[in-house]
Design a binder for these strands. Structure first.
Lengths: 239, 239
DNA sequence: TAGATTGTTAATCGATTAACAATC
DNA sequence: TAGATTGTTAATCGATTAACAATC
């Protein structure tokens, strides 16, 4: 940066996103999708994937796929394609999915229970080491193989396991206060399912899943396409 | 379009997204968020919202907020801000959330049950008129106030209620085949929670919620921010 | 009035696509 | 070889921001 004035929004944005090798968000989202497709292809015994086939599945240009994979450091072979194994290994590494990612889940309602019962997140290295609820009526139950613990034990679990990631499936009204407390205890990443945009201090990352916003967009697409022939695929991104 | 060649990808994309007033995706996502914030502000008795306060909550530039609201046809008043009621009414109308949006839900597992038990989607006008599962052991149960029906009855429910929207909470392996069938029965929009990118004919819209992709991105952000001071908010968008 | 806020145009920037070369 | 596919540079495009005018 040159000059003495305060940094512009562009300068701030760039400084934040470029440190420590963070990827631009659109690229990162596509990489996560390539990873998912490659996982399935691997299970089906498919040894290679062409940029055209990946592009077809995502509804994007095949040039973009090649650019993305090149940016991720994955090389293909002309006339053959990209090795499924290369894609998986490199993206596991780049996205950090190979490690064991320990997490706690707070709020053991229907959605919390659904997440605990879904086995697929293990492919991202997710390992839930504690499940909590402030409702003492729920404490002691077993959900998805996890015993529900009282909130009083949350602090020590975070410390003992050095947990960095918290999954929040609590009511909207409780979310912001809880997040502030969690950040104070050392939590560095929040997967938030409450329909509210949480504000966080620098150094903490959040993903607001916000299903209601997704539904609103889908409904708009539906209305807009009525009578037309719009073929639109809505992705699953969360800002 | 000029010339006789086949349309370029740009031309195709433009033709698809501009017909019948569909909004660019990033804009539409922000509009859905403004709607959500305005709903909450209204419940709290807040009569006006400034572009700066909206921008602060979403972590974006306030100029962008004013541009967005202007694009939506919402006018503000200097020194006062935008009327909460104006935002709500206009976005209800523009996004199509004011109408009753009838839907069916297929796949009554944990996630399906969580969706049926969440009241917040009613704010988007969502009304579930049928819940189905191919597992006969689940048929007859009541979930979130809905009786689970056998798949055999799905066809007639779609026809009788003229349902356009289907919520899919079925296993990945069943998703594509089921979607093909639903489209044949008249379904025009799919809210898909299976971690797979469904392919659809023109005229049908999909939103792939794909939580695993969201988790993968959050984990990457966490790793990338380690040691740094990255303040990143992940949105909840789905391509 | 002065000041705060909206409204709008021009500039900038990042992401995507087109064109084409390189390679197996 | 011929052909299919990857790799890369330049052009394009859309979205965002900066600058500033307008308004209450």
């Amino acid at each position: 940066m040159v000059g003495t004035g305060r940094p512009t929004a562009h300068e701030r944005g760039r400084a934040e996103s470029e440190e420590r090798g963070a990827l631009p968000r659109p690229l990162r989202e596509r990489l996560a999708r390539y990873h998912q497709i490659a996982t399935r292809a691997g299970e089906l015994g498919q040894a290679t994937l062409s940029s055209a086939s990946l592009a077809g599945m995502l509804g994007i240009d095949d040039t973009l796929v090649r650019k993305d994979l090149a940016a991720a450091g994955i090389a293909g072979r002309p006339k053959v394609g990209f090795a499924t194994r290369d894609i998986l290994c490199r993206l596991d590494d780049l996205l950090g999915l190979g490690d064991s990612n320990q997490a706690i889940l707070i709020g053991c309602g229907h959605l919390g229970g659904a997440i605990l019962n879904y086995a697929g997140f293990a492919k991202c290295g997710l390992k839930v080491v504690g499940v909590f609820d402030s409702d003492h009526a729920k404490v002691g139950r077993t959900v998805g193989g996890h015993e529900v613990l009282p909130m009083e034990k949350c602090r020590s679990v975070i410390e003992v396991f050095q947990v960095a990631l918290a999954i929040l499936t609590v009511p909207t009204s409780a979310a912001q206060e809880l997040v502030d407390w969690l950040v104070g205890r050392g939590i560095r990443a929040i997967w938030n399912f409450a329909p509210v945009d949480l504000r966080l201090p620098p150094g903490v990352v959040v993903r607001n899943e916000n299903l209601a916003v997704g539904l609103a967009q889908l409904i708009h697409s539906l209305k807009a396409s009525r009578g037309g022939q719009t073929a639109a695929a809505e992705g699953g991104r969360n800002p």
